[in-house]
């Protein structure tokens, strides 16, 4: 086989491999829908009821919009983050645990294909849940107008990508099922709750506002909120610069993707 044909054949193998992993992940997501799709939608609906309707009615407005409208982008983003991470960490760790990850490791696919396949699975789940939560929110807000569909979708996709990679790294390092829930419980949840989902960080004392700016989730939540509510929010309630937010997310993606690929190539957590 000449070099060009050989390269073409390898490219085809990788593309078909990627398609196979993505289909497998989407089928898994749909097969266990009572575990993957229903619970996050129910949880977020409860947030809408409790924080939006019950407590929100006493809060009134935040940043010039009703409190319910203010928290919708944050809650959607919270679903996106949790589901992207959880999907990849549980799926890849299960494959590792059952050893069927070996099916992929012995195959002639590039390691980046395995990583991209799982990332895509995570993004699909995150966007499915995010969209569902956004649709559910329509029942709780008086008016839902998306300021910029492009910014909104771009932030959601990039955030889902970022946390899918995070989930993948967690799965590589995990040795037992307990290790799968440590990061979501002790890192992701606090960072998300303190990431401006329920409030503007401008409301915090200057010191804590500064500390909050070190939380990457602040940039994602606020960029998403910007995509939906820009034009309605008072300028002083826009916590971050949208370009800074995109830069922060992109930087994290590049760093974590490189790290995950390096770990895969070294066989960390997979090969002895």
């Amino acid at each position: 086989m000449n070099v060009a044909l050989e390269e073409q054949s390898r490219l085809k193998t990788n593309l078909v491999g990627l398609q196979t992993i993505v289909i497998k992940e989407v089928v898994r997501l749909l097969r266990i829908w009572p575990q993957t799709i229903v619970p996050p939608v129910i949880t977020t609906t409860l947030y809408f009821i409790i924080f939006g309707k019950v407590i929100g009615s006493r809060v009134g407005e935040m940043g010039g919009v009703p409190y319910m409208e203010f928290i919708v982008p944050g809650l959607v983003m919270m679903s996106v983050i949790n589901n992207a991470y959880t999907n990849v960490v549980s799926s890849f760790f299960s494959s590792k645990f059952q050893k069927n990850v070996e099916e992929m490791l012995v195959a002639p696919m590039h390691n980046s294909v395995i990583l991209l396949g799982y990332m895509t699975g995570g993004v699909v789940r995150a966007l499915t849940i995010g969209t569902t939560v956004l649709l559910v929110s329509a029942f709780f807000v008086e008016e839902m107008v998306i300021y910029s569909v492009w910014i909104t979708v771009a932030v959601a996709v990039l955030t889902a990508t970022l946390f899918s990679i995070g989930g993948f790294i967690n799965a590589l390092l995990a040795r037992k099922f307990d290790d799968v829930s440590i990061i979501p419980t002790f890192v992701l949840t606090p960072l998300t709750y303190l990431g401006g989902v329920f409030y503007s960080i401008k409301l915090l004392p200057p010191f804590w506002e500064g500390v909050s700016r070190a939380n990457p989730i602040v940039y994602m939540v606020n960029a998403f909120r910007y995509g939906i509510l820009q034009g309605h929010l008072k300028p002083e309630y826009i916590d971050i610069n949208i370009y800074t937010a995109f830069a922060v997310i992109a930087l994290f993606i590049v760093f974590l993707f490189s790290l995950a690929l390096w770990m895969l190539n070294r066989g960390i957590g997979l090969r002895q």
Binding site: S9, K12, T13, N14, V16, G17, Q19, T20, I21, I23, K24, V27, S94, S95, Q98, K99, N100, E102, E103, M104, A107, P108, M109
Partner: peptide, 27 residues
């Protein structure tokens, strides 16, 4: 391999087809 290392919750056909896909065989 010596040990069963496929996903026990997947369909038989799906397991073999996936492996074919990993080796670059179109669907």
């Amino acid at each position: 391999p010596q040990e069963f290392n496929f996903n026990q919750f997947e369909q038989v056909q799906q397991i073999v087809m996936q492996q074919a896909g990993y080796y670059g065989l179109p669907r």
